[in-house]
Structure formats: structure tokens, C-alpha cells
Design a protein around this nucleic acid. Structure first.
Lengths: 164, 164
DNA sequence: GTGCTTGCAAAGACTTTGCAAACTT
DNA sequence: AAGTTTGCAAAGTCTTTGCAAGCAC
């Protein structure tokens, strides 16, 4: 799926990077923050704040919901996780294992799974449109909601994501 | 800004169209629903549910917040208004005066104004990506958050949108 | 008259915040 | 020791919902 020439620099040691980020910002390295970080990087795909709380508590049962909500902005600011807002529902988050460039999302209307897809032209688009408006792009997002052809034909989610 | 070949069919009589839509769905034509519709079409640009409540009450002071929230899905389903979800904050809505095709949004990071921009290639993009995933596109959105060059240079919003 | 709609107020869902205790540096 | 950070619970924001009265058809 990702066979473009898009640069995709692997982040070597994300946990250390996170500690260094906190140190550089004068933030303290607490067990709760590390548990939340670890939980985020253990996750396979996208997760919500609530998912993250559940997983972080398995690593450190003192983690509270408040701390998760207070940590998410730190994690996103560090670039180690990305926020993915698909609207309507909650916000989703995603470990940024590769320092990815421009990604679009395809949201399955049948199983709600979120697919991440490279979309390098988003950068060009942002610059082009903003140039006309005398503005400077800061971020962009592109999302497609789509029905799953095999699911609708067979009634089964052949990709292994549950049907709800 | 909108000089593409995009088809842009003007809706002749939106108010009648709305009444017909309700009749066809077996929904009753109430004063409240009409006031909400009228308020939506009086609005210049984007508005929130709360904005709509305020304006609709000027036309019919019996309109309640609950009815606004209950009417918004009807209005969007009829195609007479569009929902624009820029994430984070509330949802915004917009009278669909022209039956517009594919539009992207540019959100000003300085004054929060939402610019609507034609982006016909979104359709192509949705089809292309979904084809690879064996899916069928239902809707798509493209949004760019951008800083305002003149505002940052002069400290004044030269477009006339307030500074916050 | 029938039953969809309404306003009200309460409930929900998700997130933020005040405060004293606990912890990092 | 100094000052952040934490958990808890309460508060906040936006939206939805139960119910009896009211209105469109």
C-alpha cells in the first residue's frame, strides 16, 4: 500500500526520545507518563483515550483517566503519537512508529476500521490553495468514508475486523 | 476562487424544496422547522447549532435547543444544508445554496474563519484509494489549517473577520 | 381524532479542572 | 526542600432523550 517514494524515517528509540523530550521541556519523567507511553506503543493500531487508560493501567494500575488526558497533548507534541480526528465519534490516536509524512485515512463504514494511506500530494494541495488565499499551511487532513465491498457481498468482514 | 468547470446547480426554491422533502418523508411541516430552515438560509457563512438556535428564535421564539438538534439531521439529509466538521470544536453547518460538488475547507489558525474551496479531485482520490482497498467511497473531506500571512505581518485581520 | 412534534429538564458522553497528597529533581 | 504531577471527584461542554402537552394532518 505504501510504495511511494515518501520518506519514512524510522524512529530509533522512541521511549528514550520521549524521556529526552520531557527533560528538554522541563517536564518530569513519572511512572504514569511512561506507562501511558508504553501502552500507546504496544497498541497495534488506532486507540481512544479510554483504550489507552485501560492498557496503561495494566502496566501501572495507579494511572488515572485525568493523567491520560493530561499526557496526550505531551505525547502528540513530542511527535511520538499522532492525533486522528475522524469527526463524530471520539478522537483516535496512533503511535508514530515511523516519522510519517502525509497520511490520509479511509474509514470503513461497515466495521469502523481506520486505514492509514500515504497521500504525499496533500502537501502540494495545501500549499497551492493557501497560496491563493495568502496563507501558510500548518496541517491538513484528508479522510474518505467508504463501504467494504467484500463485507457487503458476503456479510463477513474478510479483513478480520469485527462487525459490531 | 471558484473558476473550475465544477457543476454548480443553483437550487431554485430551497424553502419549497424543504417542504416537499418533509412531505415526502411523512414529516410534518411545523413553524419551528421552518424557522430553523429560514435561519439557516439567512446565515452568511458557517454556523453552529447554538448560532442557529439564536437566529431561529428571532423568527419564532418558541424554538428550543432540542428542536434545533432534532432538525439538523433532517436538513442535512435533505441536502439543503451541509455539515462541516473541522474537528476539535463543535460541528459547523452551511446552507447549501448551490448544490455544490466537492469542497475542501481552509481553516484560518488566526481568526478561525472557514473558507470553502472547490476540490473536484477529491472524488478521483476517493475512488483511487478505495479501489486499492476494495471499498466504495461514500464521502470525503479535505481540510487545511493555515496561518494568515497579512494578519501575522500587520496584526490586523484584513479580511474583516475578527481577531478573537 | 391520531400520532408526530415540541419544550423542558434530566441524562449522557467525553474532557477539563480544583485541590491536597505524593513524587521527581 | 521546592515545585511538578497525581488521583479523585466535581464541573464543563455539547448533544441526546423521556415525558406530557400541543399541533399538523
Amino acid at each position: 500500500m505504501s510504495n511511494s517514494a515518501t520518506a519514512s524515517i524510522e524512529i530509533e528509540n522512541p521511549r528514550e526520545t520521549f524521556k529526552e523530550f520531557m527533560a528538554s521541556k522541563g517536564l518530569r519523567v513519572t511512572n504514569q507518563r511512561l506507562a501511558i507511553f508504553d501502552a500507546a506503543y504496544e497498541a497495534e493500531g488506532h486507540f481512544t483515550a479510554e483504550d489507552l487508560l485501560d492498557q496503561a493501567r495494566k502496566l501501572d494500575d495507579s494511572v488515572s483517566r485525568a493523567t491520560v488526558y493530561r499526557s496526550l497533548p505531551i505525547l502528540t507534541e513530542s511527535g511520538l503519537i499522532r492525533e486522528v480526528d475522524v469527526g463524530h465519534d471520539n478522537k483516535y490516536y496512533l503511535a508514530n512508529r515511523q516519522a510519517q509524512t502525509f497520511q490520509a485515512q479511509v474509514i470503513c463504514a461497515d466495521c469502523d476500521h481506520i486505514f492509514e494511506v500515504d497521500a504525499p500530494f496533500m502537501e502540494w494541495y495545501g500549499k497551492t490553495v493557501c497560496g491563493k488565499l495568502d496563507m501558510q499551511p500548518q496541517s491538513q487532513r484528508l479522510q474518505v468514508v467508504a463501504g467494504c465491498t467484500p463485507f457487503r457481498a458476503t456479510g463477513v468482514c474478510t479483513r478480520g475486523f469485527k462487525t459490531a
